[in-house]
Simulated assay, not measured.
Amino acid sequence: MESSLATSQMSDEIVCFCGQSSVTRTSLTANNPGQRFRSCSFYGQPDAWDYFSWVDPPPHPRYKAIINKLLRKDNSKRNDEQQLRRLVKCYQIALEVFLLGVIIQKIWL
């Protein structure tokens, strides 16, 4: 699709030709961590207008390094939490199977 935008007469709001207001998002990529940009509200979805505009200047290299380190730490923590949830779920299932075995054994005896 063609990259297009229009400025609303009512305000300084940027409206995409899809008819929706553009939205401000924050990049979490390694190249542009923490850098804000405006895009079509359907950006990244099939058939979305490819309107895209940076709001902030490129981040300082030191800032990039700090933000990327924090993002890696956050992702690592999130992965640890997911693994813990899986482990707890496995223990719950094992306990349910054990209790079911005890109940079945009591019924048959």
Rank of each mutant, 00 (worst) to 15 (best):
I67H: 10
S11K: 13
L5Y: 12
G34S: 14
A48C: 11
G34I: 15
V55A: 05
Q82K: 13
P57T: 05
Y51I: 00
G44N: 10
S39R: 07
Y43D: 04
V15W: 14
P33K: 14
Q20W: 04
D74E: 14
M1C: 03
Q20R: 15
W49Y: 11
C16R: 12
E13V: 13
D47S: 12
R36L: 14
R86Y: 02
L84H: 09
T24G: 07
Q83P: 00
H60Y: 02
V88G: 00
T29D: 14
L5C: 02
F42R: 13
F17N: 10
L28T: 07
L109V: 09
N31M: 07
F42T: 06
A65G: 01
S27D: 13
F52Q: 02
T29V: 07
A94P: 00
M1S: 08
H60N: 12
G19P: 07
A65T: 04
R38T: 05
P58K: 06
I104F: 03
L87R: 01
Q82W: 05
K69F: 09
F17C: 09
Q35Y: 13
P57I: 06
S4T: 11
V55E: 12
K89T: 03
S3W: 04
C18I: 04
A6Q: 11
S76W: 10
V15Q: 15
T29E: 14
I67Y: 14
K106I: 08
C90S: 12
S41P: 00
S4M: 05
V55S: 03
W49D: 06
N31R: 15
D56N: 02
F52S: 03
C90L: 08
I103L: 13
K77N: 08
C18D: 09
D50A: 03
T24K: 15
I66A: 05
R62W: 01
F37R: 06
L99P: 00
C90R: 13
P59T: 03
S11E: 12
S22E: 02
E13K: 15
L5P: 01
D80C: 08
R62L: 04
Q45E: 10
S41F: 05
F52K: 02
P33H: 12
Q105H: 08
I66L: 11
K64E: 07
N79S: 11
F37C: 03
L71F: 03
R86M: 04
Q35L: 15
L100F: 06
P59E: 04
Y91E: 03
A30K: 15
L71G: 01
Q45G: 01
R25Y: 09
C18R: 05
Q9Y: 10
N79W: 09
D74R: 15
